[in-house]
Design a binder for these strands. Structure first.
Length: 591
DNA sequence: ACGCTCGCATCAGGTGGGAAACGG
DNA sequence: CCGTTTCCCACCTGATGCGAGCGT
C-alpha cells in the first residue's frame, strides 16, 4: 500500500524543524528530572527515525534511565523501504510539563500551541529536506482534514518495557506483539472515511546485539530488508466516528522474519532480527470505498510513540524483558512459577498490575488535562465475562468496574468533558460534543457504548486480552477471575473508594505500584524512593531467582547488576508518570 | 414448546523455555 | 566456535459447541 515516497523529506519549514528538535527520549521525556518534556517528533522523515540527541543531559550522566540505548549521535537512518507516508506531520506530545497539574490549565491541553516551538532543548539539527506535501499541508483544527489526536492506550505498559529496551520476538509463522499497539483517536471528521494502519520502520541504522547485559550496536543495519512493513487495521476503511468510538487495537498484528511471507495480504510485518524498530500509526483519509484520493491533498497523519520502539529478536535476550512478558501476557501465565507469590505475597513487587489497578485508578487525571479520556473505555476495567462479546478486533467496550468504587471519578470525568467543551479548542470541543451520545450512554449506565454502527470485520480479536481493552495497560491483564481468586481480600490493591485518596492511604507496600502508574505527587515519589530498598524483599529475591532458573540467561546478568539502576529509574520514571499522570495516555497530535 | 442462560468440555492458538540445528 | 535461528514442548487463554436447567 505504501509505495515509496521520496525519502527526502519533510521538515522543510522552520516550524517543522523546531518541532523536530523537540523530541526526546521517551524515558527521559517522561522523567520529570530530565528537563525536557516528553515530546515526540513525526519520525523525522518517511524513513528516518532520529534518535534523540542529548543536550541538556546525557543519558549516561544525568538520566537514571540512561541504560536505554539511545544513540547520542542523532543518527539519521534511511531504510530501503521508504514509506510514502513520510512523517508527514510532526508530532508533539501534549503531555504537560513537569509540575503541570492544574485542571484548569489542562484545558489547554489540546492546544497545539502548547507543543510547538517551546522546547528549550532544541536538540536536533534542522532538517534540510525538501519537505513534503503532507508536512506542508495546512490542517484545519476542525472539520474535514482536521488534525487528529492519538493516545497510546497502554502506554504505562509500554513504558515498563521501554525502560529495559523492549524486545519483540519474531518467528517464521509470525508472533504477536506484546505489548501490542493500541490507540485512541480523536479529532477526526465523524463522517469522513479513513484507513488506519501501522507501519514499522527502522529506528536507527545499527545492528544490535545483547552483550554484557546491555544492548550495544554491532555494525550497520541491513537496510535492504524486503518485506511487508505495513499492517492495515482490518476495520479499514471506516468513518471517523467509528475510529473514535473506541480503542483501535492492533493485537493481531504479527511480526515475522520470514521474507517469503505474502506481504500484501498478510497480517504480518516482516522484520529483521536484532534491528531496532519504531512503529508508526498512519491515518489516511480516503474516499468511501477506501480508495485514497491520490489526486487531491494527501490527507495523511502519522504518529509515532518512542516508547513503542523495540528490538526484534528471535529469542529474548534481556531477562528483564522476559519477566515482564511473562508477568503481563496472559498467554505466558504458564511460566509464572512464582505465580502465587506474585499475587499474594509481595503485591508491590509484582510487575503485573492488580485486577483492581484499574486504568482508572491509574489515571486519575487531574482536571481536564485528559478531558478526552472519558471517551475511552480504557479507563474502565472490564469485569464482565467477555466471551459474550466478540464482534470486534478492537477492544470490546466494557463496562467498567466502576461499578463501584470509582463512580465518583466517573462523574468527575464527565465533568472534564464538560469543561473541555466549554473551554476547549474548537476542534476538540466539537468533537467531544459529537461524541456525547456515547459518553452519555456509558457514563449513565456504566455499560459499554460499543454498539457499532458499522460492521466489524473481525471478531473477538482482542478478547484474548480481556483486560487489555482498556487496559490500556498493564492494568489490563489482570482482571480475570484466575487472578482474582488468588487474591486475598486484604491485599493492598483491593478496591478503593477513590483512587486519589485511596492510594495515599495505602500501605507502603502498595506505593510503588500505585505511584508508578498513577500518582501525580512528588511527595509520593519520594516515599517510593525511600521505601524502595525494602521493596527488594526476600520473597521477591527468591521468586525472581526461581524464575531465573528457568531462563536461558544467568541471573548474574544485567538484571541483578542493574537492579539498583533499574530501581532508581523506576522511581524516577514513576515520578515522570506521576508528573504527568495523565501520561497515562500519551497524547500526540499533529501540529 | 420455545427461548434464554449457564456450565462444561473441547479445540485452536498463543506463550516462553530449552535443546538442536544452522551459519558466518 | 559461537551466536543466532528453528523446532518442539508444556502450559495457558479464549472461543465455540453442546446439553441441562429454568422461565414464559
Amino acid at each position: 500500500m505504501l509505495g515509496g515516497e521520496g525519502e527526502s523529506s519533510t521538515f522543510s519549514s522552520p516550524k517543522d524543524t523546531a518541532d523536530e528538535r523537540r523530541k526526546s527520549p521517551a524515558v527521559e521525556g517522561d522523567d520529570p528530572t530530565c528537563g525536557s518534556r516528553y515530546t515526540e517528533h513525526g519520525m523525522g522523515t518517511d524513513r528516518y527515525y532520529i534518535p534523540p540527541t542529548v543536550t541538556k543531559q546525557s543519558p549516561e550522566a544525568g538520566n537514571p534511565c540512561s541504560f536505554i540505548p539511545y544513540s547520542p549521535t542523532g543518527t539519521v537512518y534511511t531504510t530501503s523501504s521508504a514509506s510514502r507516508y513520510p512523517t508527514s506531520l510532526h508530532l508533539g506530545s501534549v503531555l504537560p510539563p513537569a509540575g503541570f497539574s492544574s485542571s484548569a490549565a489542562g484545558r489547554s491541553h489540546f492546544s497545539p500551541a502548547y507543543q510547538l516551538g517551546q522546547s528549550p532543548g532544541c536538540i536536533y539539527p534542522p532538517y534540510t529536506g525538501s519537505g513534503s506535501a503532507i508536512s506542508a499541508m495546512p490542517l484545519p483544527t476542525a472539520g474535514p482534514g482536521m488534525r487528529a489526536q492519538v493516545y497510546l492506550c497502554n502506554r504505562p505498559l509500554w513504558l515498563k518495557f521501554h525502560r529495559h529496551q523492549t524486545e519483540m520476538i519474531i518467528t517464521k509463522q509470525g508472533r504477536r506483539m506484546f505489548p501490542f499497539l493500541s490507540f485512541n483517536i480523536a479529532g477526526l471528521n465523524l463522517t469522513a472515511h479513513y484507513n488506519v494502519f501501522v507501519e514499522v520502520v527502522l529506528a536507527d541504522p545499527n545492528h544490535w546485539r545483547f552483550q554484557g547485559g546491555k544492548w550495544v550496536t554491532c555494525g550497520k543495519a541491513d537496510n535492504n530488508m524486503q518485506g511487508n512493513k505495513m499492517y492495515i487495521h482490518p476495520e479499514s476503511p471506516n468513518t471517523g466516528a467509528h475510529w473514535m468510538r473506541q480503542e483501535i487495537s492492533f493485537g493481531k498484528l504479527k511480526l515475522t522474519n520470514n521474507k517469503g511471507t505474502n506481504t500484501s495480504s498478510s497480517q504480518m510485518i516482516v522484520l529483521q532480527s536484532l534491528h531496532k524498530y519504531q512503529p508508526r500509526l498512519h491515518i489516511v483519509e480516503v474516499s468511501e470505498d477506501g480508495v485514497e484520493d491520490i489526486g487531491g491533498d494527501v490527507k495523511t497523519q502519522t504518529f509515532s510513540f518512542p516508547e513503542t520502539q523495540f528490538i526484534a529478536v528471535t529469542a529474548y535476550q534481556n531477562t528483564d524483558i522476559t519477566q515482564l512478558k511473562i508477568d503481563h501476557n496472559p498467554f505466558a501465565k504458564g511460566f509464572r512459577d512464582n505465580y502465587d507469590s506474585m499475587y499474594t505475597a509481595t503485591e508491590h513487587d509484582r510487575l503485573t498490575p492488580s485486577p483492581t489497578d484499574s486504568p482508572r485508578s491509574q489515571q486519575i487525571v487531574p482536571g481536564a488535562r485528559y478531558a478526552m479520556q472519558p471517551l475511552f473505555q480504557d479507563q474502565f476495567v472490564n469485569n464482565l465475562p467477555q466471551n459474550r462479546f466478540h464482534n470486534s478486533e478492537r477492544a470490546v467496550p466494557q463496562t467498567n468496574s466502576l461499578i463501584s468504587p470509582q463512580t465518583d471519578d466517573l462523574a468527575s470525568q464527565r465533568w472534564f468533558v464538560a469543561s473541555m467543551q466549554q473551554a476547549g479548542s474548537a476542534g476538540v470541543a466539537a468533537n467531544k460534543l459529537e461524541l456525547t451520545p456515547y459518553e452519555g450512554e456509558y457514563s449513565s449506565t456504566l455499560l459499554p457504548y460499543g454498539i457499532k454502527s458499522l460492521s466489524m470485520q473481525t471478531s473477538h480479536a482482542l478478547s484474548y486480552y480481556p483486560d487489555c481493552p482498556f487496559t490500556t495497560m498493564s492494568a489490563g491483564w489482570g482482571s480475570r477471575a484466575t487472578y482474582q481468586r488468588k487474591v486475598t481480600p486484604s491485599l493492598p490493591w483491593s478496591p478503593r473508594p477513590s483512587p486519589t485518596t485511596g492510594f495515599l492511604e495505602d500501605s507502603d507496600k502498595d506505593k510503588p505500584q500505585m505511584e508508578e502508574e498513577l500518582s501525580g505527587s512528588v511527595g509520593l515519589v519520594s516515599a517510593w524512593t525511600e521505601t524502595q530498598p525494602s521493596a527488594l524483599t526476600l520473597e521477591k529475591a527468591e521468586s525472581y531467582s526461581v524464575a531465573c532458573k528457568r531462563r536461558r540467561l544467568s541471573l548474574s546478568g544485567p538484571s541483578t547488576e542493574n537492579s539498583p539502576t533499574d530501581i532508581k529509574c523506576e522511581d524516577l520514571t514513576s515520578a515522570a508518570t506521576n508528573n504527568s499522570m495523565a501520561s497515562y495516555y500519551s497524547f500526540y497530535t499533529n501540529p
